[in-house]
Design a protein around this nucleic acid. Structure first.
Lengths: 250, 250
DNA sequence: GTCTGCGGTTGACTTCGATCAAGGCCCCGG
DNA sequence: CCGGGGCCTTGATCGAAGTCAACCGCAGAC
């Protein structure tokens, strides 16, 4: 695993050099703030404190559990995996974070990150110093509100994962959720290209990798999916959603 | 189940009548704000928007899943259980909230509460209109920070519950966590008086009630606990913490 | 007092998913 | 072309916890 890159001194952090990348139209965090009613001036302030990080390549580390908490980050492109290693050395994946999603929020309560984050594929990030963004949030109601919402949303996500669902429900919910999130980003909702390994999915869903394999196989046999390595086609979306339904909100 | 009591029009909400209860010295939320460096004036503002609710008796409802989200609440006394009912009618307990803990935070992202909350025993609450407290948070950095921390903490709690622990680990972690929280409130850390039923504990830990019974029995046989109905004595605290350790932070 | 009901316990059996073990597939490097 | 190492799949077996069912005991109603 590489050195963490959210450390304030990291040389790969692009300087705030005033070029147009600055306005990072791809940064869905800013876009979300806009859609939350933040005015243009405030958005400009937000862009004044962003630092662009990346590209990070698969396996590179964004931050490590125990690192001093300094900043949250919005994923601009790629997939970030957050996870902890427990005392027995087992990895618990907390989440996969796609473009527009924010990582590091669970570190606000504490001096240091309670989990590690690594790039699953090629990743671009926007780094926001948390002290600075807090100050700005006090001036800009829309930003404060947006942060509250992001935090609140993560509570719900984590609680959902904590339910006692069967392997089928978990996997179905995972695929439906992923499909929706990818669709919201302009990708096909029915042809997923997974960026993570089976083992990561298993650790996320608290299943054994073998179980993930078997359930995917069965879903394919039942005509719900077509699976080819990491390419997954949702053949019968309504059946899949029915399977997932107990474990999905809304 | 009774009518929810966090609705703005609820008659049981004590009016902001300027009496000394107003300063609710027992409201650990305010105390936490104080300890976070909020100045006296700001604390006064906070007290201006609090409404005292209760007492609610066991089984009475604080809010229901689907109710319009208007307010968060700090528990002043007693225990509140938050939970959802899934499509199959199974209850998933999200948490037990003791004095000083805040409920409703997972509703910020959305129009309505995603879970219900009921009193487990006799409960007193402080109700805070969320729009109002947001406005105040923008003026008072300590309050904003405190809210961020509370939200962040809940993410961690939920994620911890989501790990794939054994029944023994879950129950041990539950008891150790409860013991610590009660100790922080001035109760004996070694003699717990549970306020909730076995079924509630089971639904919280994603176990069957029978399993909770059996594990408690075994812990007692092994000399770790003494169990008498809802009174639990932690006989061998270090053994219990060792059992719980994989599932505990810090 | 007795009846009734709920919460809790205990036992017998079942089951889902983990574990253990082996083998296949694909990619990369020599 | 062959060899090696991830990643993934498949099969056989095991075990932790769920389910089903019976029973206990305390509390409140009458």
């Amino acid at each position: 695993m590489s050195e963490p890159t959210l450390a304030p001194t990291d040389p790969r952090v692009a300087a705030d050099d005033g070029d147009e990348r600055h306005f990072c139209s791809t940064c869905a965090f800013s876009q979300a703030c806009l859609s939350q009613g933040m005015d243009k001036g405030a958005l400009l302030d937000l862009h004044m404190l962003v630092e662009h990080v990346g590209p990070l390549h698969a396996g590179e580390c964004v931050f490590r559990a125990g690192d001093r908490f300094e900043a949250i980050a919005a994923v601009r492109a790629g997939t970030v995996k957050t996870f902890t290693i427990d005392r027995e050395g087992r990895e618990h994946v907390l989440g996969f974070h796609l473009a527009g999603e924010v990582i590091g929020l669970n570190a606000i309560d504490g001096e240091s990150y309670p989990c590690s984050a690594v790039a699953v594929d090629t990743v671009m990030l926007c780094r926001f110093s948390f002290p600075k963004i807090s100050v700005l949030a006090a001036r800009v109601p829309g930003l404060q509100q947006q942060l509250f919402r992001l935090l609140s949303r993560d509570i719900g996500r984590a609680a959902l994962l904590a339910g006692d669902w069967t392997a089928d429900e978990r996997l179905a919910a995972f695929l439906v959720g992923l499909s929706r999130r990818l669709a919201a980003r302009g990708f096909s909702p029915d042809r997923l290209q997974l960026s993570m390994a089976r083992t990561d999915i298993a650790n996320y869903l608290r299943l054994a990798p073998e179980t993930v394999s078997r359930v995917l196989k069965r879903f394919q046999d039942e005509g719900v999916l077509r699976v080819d390595r990491r390419a997954i086609e949702l053949v019968d979306r309504s059946r899949l959603e029915a399977l997932a339904s107990p474990a999905l909100r809304e």
